[in-house]
Design a protein around this nucleic acid. Structure first.
Lengths: 341, 341
DNA sequence: TTGTAGGCGTTATCAG
DNA sequence: CTGATAACGCCTACAA
């Protein structure tokens, strides 16, 4: 079954393409009669406008691009969910690409989306990102662009973030309030802003409580995996037998820590109190349940798209858009892994 | 910065658009000299073909649509991963839509993709799906189409599946081998084929071992959630205090069962042995670790796209494509929740 | 109220 | 080797 076109409708009805087009878009200047005839036939032939032609004509595709490090992450998939939902509500579709935490791939994905001429781009940087040329290219081309979660402060675009430093401070403060005296930190990789900020929050919390900072208590993830959690837990307990608290960059790694401790008779939270970050679903079904910092993934997706939409509208109307930064609230979720009563 | 067009290149070089086009696509019939000039200028102006125009002209967008029930599922996000990766490798981008397990939404998403004129559609049915009109529409329009995971047998399209019945049989057989005499089944909703097949596998395994089938031991999920796992575990132990094994439709629900048992001093696997399905990441970090059936999500994504690609190529060449069904292997993963030594 | 004409940017055909 | 021309399907001034 061939796709119907305006031309076909026009021909079978013996009228002009223009009139058909107008009738279908309910322009006021079409007679009731012709309009009805057109609509009836269009329905019968299951007419749908050829989006390729519409795209070309209107110079927009009602499609946005989304680049994230990994879909298979509870946190990111929550964001994706929010973005898709909000986009769809506003008539946009979403093309998703993954950077797999690789800068090289990230650059390629950006190029793909630029070639595709998406109406806007949403992006969470990969851990590897320390080079901004590809992002600058997006801005150069004046493609509406919003960063979320893992952002670069140097890029002058809109951003949707949380206050990582504050959240980390609260998490560490909580450990201190539970009586922890010697707190280790398993941090994220060197580049990403949020790993840096969480580390700074950790340091500040110590400082505020007059606990001396000891750099040997800071362990740096390379790939932020469950396995690293296992390995660092082993290393920490070996190197610092008196560590009584660990603040971990993210739940997946923290779950590795819990697992190691469970398997090695280290009592959580009595011997070591643990708190993670992100509130993955998994955290609540662990034994003990993992304390964590909740960050609103779905809302972050919604917020990111909402800002992007504003920018896309300005872009279309030729209005200058002033980048904005939205900071979403986080909250400490205290569970068994850190609650000493 | 405006986007460069062929016309602009042609004008500044004082040659025709046609020649420019040919030069850039390395047609043989362009002189070395002009070709070089064109390529140089194109590079300098950062020319990228306007994909909208290319789409219109070639009638394909190198974009496919993907409809799944939920991204925030370890299994589905694995599939998504495989699809995106394989698609990209072949020059295709992927638009993702979610049905949220709702038939109504699913229909809407199909309509969106049809309007968008994607080159092909990949789809896992929602649990709610019992009506095929929207799928028939895809086939009517001759849009290349592949079903995966949750499929409808009635739809004559390619399919990528596992042998749910066989896998379920093996899972239940494993429980029996561990000495379980009275095995309950928490099954999925009524419609989806895989829920039906897993149920049938459960029944067959009982039959094969001369264990009488008791319909009161079968509990049916509505939404397949963690909470249902909790609730059914309570109900099962209340209604059948002698149940000593449970085969659960999927890991998320099984984790609910484990959690309930852990909280209520029911010993796993001694009192009740539990086996899930799908091998979510979470399963290996539970206490005890959850036995499960591994199904290859990434591979399923790759296989689905691969078949779709074949069909898209046939479609383009006007060749008839004969739908094929690929069945991927599964394997039982025995862990602490079912291993009685 | 209806229709004509031009153009969006690319590609393909065919003639020079 | 190069270029003129038409077409993909739709939209929108502008005329009639």
């Amino acid at each position: 079954m061939k796709n119907t076109t305006l031309k076909e409708i026009a021909e079978t009805l013996g009228i002009s393409i223009t009139t058909v087009s107008k009738a279908l878009k309910s322009y006021p200047d079409v007679s009731e009669k012709t309009r009805n005839a057109v609509i009836a036939l269009a329905e019968k032939l299951q007419y749908t406008p050829n989006s390729f032609a519409v795209n070309l004509r209107t110079k927009e595709s009602k499609t946005i691009g989304l680049i994230i490090p990994e879909v298979v992450h509870h946190f990111f998939s929550g964001i994706v969910n929010g973005i898709i939902a909000e986009a769809e509500k506003n008539g946009y579709l979403v093309i998703i690409l993954q950077s797999n935490e690789s800068l090289e791939l990230e650059k390629k994905q950006v190029a793909l989306l630029i070639n595709k001429r998406v109406d806007g781009i949403l992006m969470a940087l990969s851990n590897d990102s320390n080079d901004d040329d590809h992002i600058k290219e997006i801005l150069n081309r004046k493609i509406p662009f919003v960063q979320f979660d893992k952002i670069s402060k140097l890029i002058p675009s809109s951003k949707v973030i949380i206050n990582d430093q504050k959240a980390a401070m609260e998490a560490v403060q909580h450990l201190i309030d539970q009586g922890c005296k010697k707190i280790a930190h398993i941090r994220g990789p060197v580049n990403p802003q949020n790993a840096i900020d969480r580390f700074l929050g950790y340091k500040k919390a110590l400082e505020k409580n007059d606990i001396p900072y000891d750099s040997s208590l800071v362990y740096t993830c390379k790939n932020v995996t469950f396995e690293e959690g296992l390995a660092f837990a082993e290393q920490i307990t070996r190197e610092h037998s008196d560590v009584d608290g660990i603040f971990v960059i993210t739940d997946l790694v923290a779950v590795g820590v819990l697992t190691y401790c469970n398997q090695n008779n280290i009592k959580i939270p009595q011997d070591i109190a643990v708190i993670g970050f992100s509130n993955w679903f998994m955290s609540q079904v662990m034994t003990p349940q993992l304390s964590t910092v909740d960050q609103p993934s779905y809302d972050m997706g919604v917020a990111a798209f909402t800002i992007l939409l504003e920018e896309m509208i300005c872009h279309k109307d030729g209005v200058i858009f002033k980048p904005k930064t939205v900071e979403l609230p986080t909250s400490i979720i205290v569970r068994g892994s850190s609650l000493r009563n």
